[in-house]
């Protein structure tokens, strides 16, 4: 589904290179965890896939279903099935969650040449998702993330994901700032959305989220490159030993 090939990316403002030749292949139905120390480029990877303009790709490519994403605007990427759950979800006062999601969903349906959803069927659609994730209905009428607690914001990201039904979900440090209960709610939401034609990239600093969202593959990102890949047991090893031993290992082979 997704092929990232020799990706180099820099901060547009100061041309500081963050990703330095990252390659990653993700198949439909798989869950990939990307772990790494602070400053290794995890969030940059998520943002570059979503099309954030503060980063510039200088080399390499990102292919979705064999076609490059790089020339697509962020909204076009969303229409092609890309979704990023933000590390810091943005507050938009004055715009209700319901309105926001309907605008987003209808824009995608329109881009796909399908008929837009009317207010009634849309309401039915989102009520079903509210139920699936065990959320409360009052979230719908509130302004997007305005005055939400940290946990509510993250739940709202997963809710948006459920409503928009993307094919490639990138979770950018979704576990940061969550207590264990909120973490479990968010993880349950993600697990409810796992399906054979949907893939996840879970970007995280800590292993604990992976107790709840069990990955098929774990990758270690260091200094802008994936330096080690393995199964879910790799995450446990990292939890146990930290990142230092990999640094040493990479240093030894380099």
């Amino acid at each position: 589904m997704l092929q990232i090939h020799d990706l180099h990316a820099q901060v547009a403002d100061d041309r500081r290179e963050i990703l330095k030749g990252l390659s990653l292949t993700v198949q439909a139905g798989e869950v990939h965890a990307v772990m790494g120390p602070n400053g290794s480029g995890k969030s940059t990877l998520a943002n570059v896939v979503a099309g954030r303009e503060t980063y510039e790709v200088t080399r390499g490519d990102i292919l979705l279903d064999g076609e490059s994403l790089l020339e697509s605007e962020p909204d076009e990427r969303a229409h092609r099935g890309v979704f990023m759950a933000f590390q810091y979800p943005v507050e938009i006062p004055g715009v209700s969650n319901t309105y926001f999601l309907r605008a987003a969903l209808n824009a995608r349906l329109k881009a796909e040449g399908k008929e837009e959803m009317d207010a009634m069927s849309f309401l039915k659609h989102i009520r079903a998702k509210v139920q699936l994730l065990g959320l409360s209905n009052d979230m719908l009428s509130r302004s997007v993330n305005e005055g939400f607690s940290g946990g509510e914001k993250k739940r709202n990201e997963i809710f948006q994901m459920a409503v928009l039904e993307p094919r490639l979900c990138v979770l950018d440090e979704t576990d940061s700032g969550l207590d264990i209960d909120a973490l479990q709610t968010v993880a349950n939401g993600v697990n409810a959305l796992r399906s054979p034609d949907r893939a996840f990239i879970v970007v995280t600093h800590y292993q604990r989220l992976l107790n709840f969202i069990v990955p098929d593959f774990v990758h270690v990102l260091m200094d802008g490159r994936i330096v080690k890949s393995g199964g879910k047991e790799l995450a446990l090893e990292l939890e146990d030993k930290g990142y230092g031993w990999i640094e040493a290992e990479v240093g030894a082979t380099a």
Binding site: G51, E53, D75, A78, L101, A103, A104
Partner: peptide
């Protein structure tokens, strides 16, 4: 960017 990343055109 947040809105666009959800599919809302610019």
């Amino acid at each position: 960017f947040y809105m666009r990343s959800r599919g809302v055109p610019k």
